[in-house]
Amino acid sequence: MKKQFFIYTILILSLVFTGCSDDDPAPEPVNEEEVITTMTVRLTPSGGGSEITLKTVDMDGDGDGEAIVTVSGPLSAGTTYDGIIELLNETETPAEDITEEVEEEADEHQFFYTIGTGLDVTTTYDDEDGYGDPIGVEFTLTANTASSGDLTFTLRHEPNKSADGVADGDITNAGGETDITETFPIIVE
């Protein structure tokens, strides 16, 4: 009986260890599908003129690398700009257009433009979701007087668009989660 036990043990042990011989191929890499690496804000003067772009790129998402923020140039005082925001996932080739996803789920997303102290610009939404609430991918920015300060773009997922002031662009009561946020230093000349 003792011998039998011993034999069974060896048998099972050998089964366990042969059953798992090391012949699996290396795992495949995961490319994050949802990650937003790039946000580009294009500001085109309504009356024509050169486009100003505000761009932030963070290729490794929440990895060690920091985002690279660029502003192509100053805004002109007294000018109205047509604004459009483009979001990309550049870890994929070709780059995936995340803006499309945001627009498909328009009622669950909203951009907010937060104007820092000192900066004299105003913004208005130019688009709306199925319920008539703003999305904010398209907007109008008016550069008033010569000034400088921060301009922050924030995309909220599942905000409460019916909360007080949210449809007018006030982020205070918006709730939801931040999908992307970046602050650009802006100069109006």
């Binding site: 366990v16 995961v30 490319n31 599908e33």
Partner: peptide, 15 residues
Amino acid sequence: ARYQNNFANPETGVR
């Protein structure tokens, strides 16, 4: 004696 295998499904689209 123990053998353990962990498989993380790459289909999640998250690292």
